[in-house]
Design a protein around this nucleic acid. Structure first.
Lengths: 218, 218
DNA sequence: ACAAGAAATGAACCACGGTTCACGGGCAGG
DNA sequence: CCTGCCCGTGAACCGTGGTTCATTTCTTGT
């Protein structure tokens, strides 16, 4: 017997691992997963490319880990709100606002998590992420239906609609221009949230029509 | 002077071009754009790989053309409905049903057009496609608002929400399992359409609640 | 039939970026 | 101090798949 890892070494190893993950995360935040190249990660983390492979078996493994860490944070916030004890409608509003609000503000990262073209391996990770979102929405909707706050709808489908509408309207080609968003993110968020709330049948204030009397549809 | 393209040749060239495009389209319909490899296209079209480059300057150019042709068909149908002279609410219902209905039935192709991870070049093409969708929706919404059928909302945002909700709820990881969809596609389509209609404030029948009296929200 | 030019061919080429591996340096234990 | 082991290194390697190009095959007009 001639070698046994000492605590100091273990700590250093953990540090290096961390710095690799951080480097990768930074690259994602800057340019999406497409910008993650092993040589770049290594450079940024201050290690050699070969070293990366002492900590992660492949690029895929590294990216998966990054995706998990980043998305776990987001899901955690939503889950916490969802498990609160306010009325379903209220929790719904809060969850939607949080989701949309964080997405507008961390747009590049949100893009990477939700909309960026990824290859299949990471797409799996994203699928899990989005399913979790949908589950959170669905859970709240169920509560609302159970106690009569919301009309009877298919919660899975409604949840999927919400999970699709929000990112689409906020990031990617259908989103308002960045400068528009930056100038007044909250108004956009509010409009989207309203759409989703109306979609699931939450009655809300302020449905003015252009002409004061409403014509009937044919 | 010793050579001048004759009509027969021109026709043959057009044929070859067509068969290349068809081959590529078939591959897309089977396995998405990811499945398009130049050697495969050539094999399927019955030509040599080099020949492909006499008709298309690059793989990208070929794929773009395929994307355009396929998406043009879809947009055409929607545009036609949109330009009809029924009431806005009615046109909206029809457009949404058509969009969603075609997506469920041609799921693989819809996936390629709307959800498949693509590289940036093709993503551009997709962006155009989706923007066009959104524009069609927005136009109808505007009509509806102008004549008082619909409440005042931001039509661009609502359109983006719709354009996000429908594909997300129908294809990809948040969609119901394929066998579920196949067994009763219309119910799912209807549910999604209802969500979107409600989202933009179209009053619709059948909003039962679970308990007959509705509790008021806090 | 023949020359001139276009079209088709497909094996070879090349770029790209993830992965490997033989080596040098330091840390633990005797 | 010395042995053994592990960590770190980074240039070289390699698989993949799009692209090229010298050659062959067809087409046209004389």
């Amino acid at each position: 017997m001639a070698y046994r890892k000492t605590d100091k070494v273990t700590a250093r190893l953990a540090d290096t691992r961390r710095s690799i993950l951080d480097a990768a995360r930074d690259l994602v935040a800057e340019g999406g997963f497409a910008a993650v190249q092993m040589t770049e990660v290594a450079k940024k983390a201050g290690v050699a490319t070969g070293t990366l492979y002492r900590y992660f078996s492949s690029k895929e493994a590294l990216c998966r880990q990054v995706f998990r860490e980043v998305s776990a944070r987001e899901m955690g916030m939503l889950a916490e709100i969802a498990s609160g004890d306010e009325a379903a409608g209220e929790r719904l509003v809060q969850v939607l606002r949080t989701f949309a609000g964080r997405a507008v503000r961390g747009r590049r990262l949100a893009y990477a998590l939700l909309a960026e073209p990824l290859d299949v391996n990471l797409a799996e990770e994203r699928a899990f992420f989005r399913r979790t979102h949908a589950d959170i929405f669905a859970r709240i909707l169920e509560d609302g239906i159970d106690n009569g706050e919301l009309p009877l709808i298919d919660v899975r489908i409604a949840a999927a609609c919400i999970a699709g509408a929000i990112p689409t309207a906020l990031i990617g080609p259908l989103a308002p221009e960045s400068h528009e968003l930056d100038s007044n993110p909250d108004r956009t968020v509010e409009e989207i949230v309203n759409f989703c709330l109306a979609g699931v049948g939450v009655a809300r204030a302020g449905s003015k029509t252009k002409n004061m009397e409403r014509r009937t549809t044919a």
